[in-house]
Structures are given as structure tokens and as C-alpha cells.
Design a protein around this nucleic acid. Structure first.
Lengths: 196, 196, 196, 196
DNA sequence: CATGAATGAGCGTTCATTCAT
DNA sequence: GATGAATGAACGCTCATTCAT
């Protein structure tokens, strides 16, 4: 399996660094190869083409990203806590990996529609995590019974994504993680069972 | 003033069409010129360079977009209604202009960081509109007094933007405007004064 | 006659200035028009095309240049003095008109072969002046009887041209006119009647 | 070392041919590539940009040109003979390489000031060769002791350059090499020790 | 497996010239 | 005569991908 060979990971890590440092459009394959310590042609032994590097990068990194969130959530016993956990993990992982934050929030979005559709595929797994939390909250009667699943998904992901993008575009100069509680509160209220 | 000359508008409208039909990266200046019915060189009598076409496009279209929202909001008497109005106008305008929706939600985001910073400048005016509604709601005691302005702004804009982008990426095949009420309810709850 | 109308001269003088200040390749017709205080289109009422401006410029300025040399030479009574006079006038006129010196020695040479053939036509008149002096010197028995006219012409003009070009390329920072005597001596010796 | 690879030389030789045949301004990179039998992009593996091709061309060809003159001069025992040798070699090399003559005398002069300054750098080595001959002649008491070095250099080079340029502009239709003796005599006389 | 020299398609921009007013 | 908005042809350079070694 190619994905377990050391050069596969080397190239993906090199791509993250090169893109974060130079921006999407100034990230030539030859630059990634140089940073990874391999020849240009070697890239094509591990990846179909340049786009494949980017999709794979997103799959690998976002896969780990989501896995960690899933693991953390398992330790929580109700939907509200799980949602807080998701927010905190989302922020924490990007706050602790500046290069990855730049690449996922800014640079990879400059890719074409085709690539972004593939990226969306990867994100579907994340959407499922959100869905499960919301369903659980509805079963617990803590969330409103009539929520439109798609809307909620977009509310949660849209808000998280927008807050992280703003933080990155402001050069990451404030503390992203401090926002967790506030965002959680806003979302919880939005989703809450209306008692009146 | 160049911006009031007919060719200025012709070129911008041609750019919207060409980008929507071909995608950002396949939109050559010569294609825009042909669609606008002018010579390639004429473009450069009205715009400094290709990027300037795109920035101007965004300024013009988003300027009108925000203006219409502002006008509509003026006719409403409280924050909740104003927020609903904002959501409905936001959705309506993009739903009624498919090409523009594609260009603003998908294609223009493929531009480089520099261009996107300029786009952000234009969006600041929209953020102010949101801010005013939230402030009004807080004064009316309908919204929580302790809201973090930045978070709320990102909650509202992030949700609207994510819902529209999803709708565009799904080829606009469901009715965007029908979501207005649901999104409004989610946001209102999120912002509401906690009475317990 | 167009050549006597004020705008004709205005445009030529503007061309000299623009070329001296911006260099041949950065001297667009529109820049010359602006400096001359006329519209772009007006240029084409007085000149066939851009090349025609440059040829006319050379004809006019070089015509005056040669005329002044001819007048001065008339006042001298023998070939040696006439040659000194020619050298002094050549240097003096260019030293007193820096812009013209730059244009004739550096910028106009960047034109294509066709234009330079026309420039050569203008210079033929100058070559005749040199020829007359040499012939006179030979008749006076002060110059060698067996001189090859073409070689002498090229010796004299080549030396003058090379010295002026060097002076211009060194930013005119030494006194060109002080070289007159030395150059005269070198040339006179070269042409002299061999008495041994 | 790139300069020793066969394609480096191929490209330079192609450039000489293309420029001689089409003129400086009609010599596109793609034409040079085609003549050299390589792809357009290959040019840029060996040269920084188009100007770099031209500068390198001049450096290489003029370097060899001067080297051959230096070698030939070494075999001569006094300044007069060395000067004759220099003139003969100068004429001979250009007479035997028509394309190169056209390129150096006519086409390369159409380049901008920047490029011509680089060309002048290359020529400095030639000027040193002339200087050495003149110094030797002065030591031998065959040349005048009070010669102004700069003037002499310009006399010699200006005359050679002017004679070759005239020959090229007259389509090389007379025998350049037959002029050697005549030019040598003129220059020798000009530089000679005055015995009276 | 790995290399890296070679490929060649693709495009934003300038500016001399025209011509309707 | 004078204007200046409009024209459109022309080209240097980049970089993802291939393939002989």
C-alpha cells in the first residue's frame, strides 16, 4: 500500500508546508518535490497528478482531524457536552497547527470546483458526526424535535468554518480557543427545545 | 466618471456570465471582451488589469446587493423582523441571479489572498448591517445582553454563506428561499434573551 | 508646407525630449502627443507614422547641425583649420544640447535597419563636407595624395562618433570639447603628406 | 557547467542565424527554439530570459573573437605589426562570418541601453588589447609619447567599427580585408612619433 | 524504484493607428 | 483642422507531466 510508505507522507507534509509558506498558486510540483527531498518524477510514482496530492492531503489530514474529534466525543455522555467537545477539538487542532489551518481555510479553497467537490466528500464524514450529535440531542429532548437536519448541519459547520477563517485571515492574532464557550452557547440556544 | 459609462457595466456583466459559464480559471480576458462586444484592448481603458475587473465586479454587485437589503430593512420595525428580512433578501437576490450566485460563492473564492482581502473590504459594509440589527435587538431586550459581537456576526454570516454555497454546489436544485424561516428561527433562538 | 507650421516643430521637439527622458522603447506616440500639447490623432496630420517622426527629427536637427558646420568652415582658409573647425563644431553642438546628443548617439540607434538606412541618407551630406575638406587638403599637398576617400571618411566620422558616444555613455561627465585638439592632431597626422 | 552543454551552444548559434535572417525585432524566442531544434521551454533551462540569450551570445562570440586576436598578436614582435595583425584579424573574422557581422554591427545595437551597457563590458577586454599595443609602441618610441590613451582607443576602435558597419550596410559587397593595409597606414601615421 | 532534462500549450497586456464627431 | 475612444495583433514565459536512463 502506497499510503504507508514513508515518501507518501513526506510528500504530503512537504505540500502542506510549501502551500502554507508560498500560497496555493506559487506551489509548484517541483517546489514540493525539493522540500520532500525527492525528484520531481518521484511525485508521480505516488500521486496521479498535482490535484491528487491536494485531495490526498485533505483526506489524510482531515481524516485524522475527524478521528480525534470522534474519539473525544465518545467520552462525553450527552449531546450538549459532545457539541462543546466538537467545537473545542475543532478549534484546538487548527490552533495547534498553523500551517494546516492556512492550507485548509485559505489556500485549498483557491482550487477549482472539481477539487472542491472531492473535498466536500471528505467533509461528509464530519457532517455525519454533527448529525449524530443533533439526533442524540433530539432524542434527549434537549434539542427541538422539528429541526431541519440540513440547516442545523450548515449552521454548525458554517459558524465554525467562518470563525476559523476569520481568525486565519486576521493572522491568527487572537485566541481562537477562548471563543469555544461563546459559540457553544449560541448554537445550543439555536438548537434548544423551545419550552414556551 | 468611467463607472457610469455603458461599456463599464457591459464588461462587468460579461465577466459575470463568462466566469459563471466557464469557471474562474478558464475566463480569459479575450473571452470577456468578446462577450461584452468590445475589443480586448478596450477592457484596459476601463480596468487597470484582469484582477481589477473582478474586484470591481464584486464591488458593484455586492454594493447593490447590500443596498437593497438596507432599503428593505428600513421598512421593518424591530430586530427580529429585520433579521428575517435580511435572510430573505440575501437568499432571494442570489436565487434570482444564478450566475451571480455561482460567481460569488464558488468562482471568486479561487482568487488569491490579495483579491480576497479586497473582497473582505466590501463585505465589511454587510457586517455593519448585521451589527446594527443585533445592537437594536439587544436594546429591545429581545437579544441577549452579553453577546460577543464578532461571534454573532460570524454565526449569522457563516450560516447564510454556508447555506447558499451548499445550495449552489448542489446545482441549485432545491428551493433556497424556503429555508429562510428555519434559519431565522435557529438564529433568533441562538441570540435570544435567556429568560431562565 | 507642413514643415513650417508651428505644430510640426512642436511635435519634433516634444519627441526629442520624450525620447531623451524615457528612452526609445518607452516613447509612445501618446507620450509625444501629450508633451507637444496635441491629441494623438493630430500627430498623424503631420507625420505618416511613428517612424516618420523619427526620420523627420533626424533630418531637421541634423540638417541644422550640418549647416552650422558648413557656415563655420567657410570662414577658414585651409584644410587643417577646416578640419579643426569641423571637430570643434561637432563636439560643441552636441555638448550644448544634451537631449539631442542622447537621442542621436544612443536612442535612435535602437531603431530598425530600415530607419537607419534613412538616417544614413541624411548623413551623406555630412560625409560630403568631410570629403571636400580632404580633397582640399590633398590639393594643398598637406594631405597624402593616395588617400582612399572612403577610408578617410570612415576614419574621421568613426572617430568623432565613437568619442561622442563614449562621452554620452559615461553620462557626459567629462569635457568633450577639450578633446578637439587631440583628436585633430591624431587625424591630421594620419592624413598627412609623408615627407620621408 | 551549462555553458559547455551542447544545447547551450546550439541555442546561441540558432540565435545568431535567426537574428541575422529576420532582424532583431522579428526574432521571437519560439523562432530561435525551432531553429535550435529544441522546445521553447528548453531555452529557459539554459538562459534566464531573452535578453540573457543576447548577452551570452555576445559574450561567447566576442570572447572567441578577442581570444583569436590575442593569440595572433603574440606572434608579432612590435607594435606596428601587432596593430596590423589586430586590424586583419578583426576584418577577417567578421568577413568570414557574415551572420555574426550582421548581428554585432547592426542588430544587437537595437537593444536597449541596459543591454548595450553589458555589451560594453565585454568590449572592455578588447580595449585593453588596443591599449597594450599602444603602450608597447610608445615604449618602442615608434608612437608619440604624449598620446591620450582614451582618444587613441576611440580612434582605433571607432575607425574599425565604422568601416565594418559601412561594409555590412552596403551588403558586404566589397572586399573588407583589402582595406586592412590602408587603415593600418592611416592609424600608424596618426600615432607616429613626430620626428620634426 | 528513482531521476531530472525536456516538453509545449496557453494568456494578459501594450500601443501604433484609425475614424466618427 | 483637431480630437481621443476604440481597435486587435503579437509574444515572452511558466510549469505540470513524461520518459529514457
Amino acid at each position: 500500500m502506497k499510503k504507508n510508505k514513508p515518501k507518501y507522507k513526506q510528500i504530503i507534509d512537504a505540500a502542506v508546508e510549501v502551500i502554507a509558506e508560498n500560497g496555493y498558486h506559487a506551489s509548484q510540483v517541483s517546489k514540493i518535490a525539493r522540500k520532500a527531498g525527492v525528484a520531481d518524477g518521484t511525485i508521480y510514482l505516488y500521486f496521479k497528478n498535482k490535484e491528487d496530492i491536494l485531495v490526498s492531503l485533505f483526506e489524510q489530514k482531515m481524516g485524522q482531524f475527524i478521528e480525534k474529534i470522534e474519539e473525544e466525543i465518545k467520552t462525553k455522555s450527552n449531546a450538549k457536552e459532545k457539541l462543546l467537545s466538537l467545537i473545542e477539538m475543532h478549534y484546538q487542532q487548527l490552533a495547534h497547527n498553523h500551517h494546516l489551518a492556512i492550507v485548509t481555510q485559505l489556500e485549498l479553497r483557491q482550487s477549482n470546483k472539481e477539487l472542491r467537490l472531492k473535498i466536500n466528500d471528505v467533509l461528509k464524514r464530519y457532517m455525519l458526526v454533527i448529525d449524530h450529535i443533533v439526533e442524540e440531542g433530539m432524542e434527549e429532548k434537549h434539542f427541538d424535535q422539528n429541526l431541519d437536519m440540513r440547516l442545523v448541519r450548515q449552521l454548525v459547520f458554517g459558524t465554525l468554518d467562518e470563525t476559523v477563517t476569520n481568525w486565519v485571515m486576521n493572522d491568527q492574532k487572537y485566541d481562537l480557543m477562548k471563543q469555544s464557550k461563546g459559540v457553544h452557547q449560541l448554537l445550543i440556544n439555536g438548537l434548544a427545545q423551545k419550552t414556551n
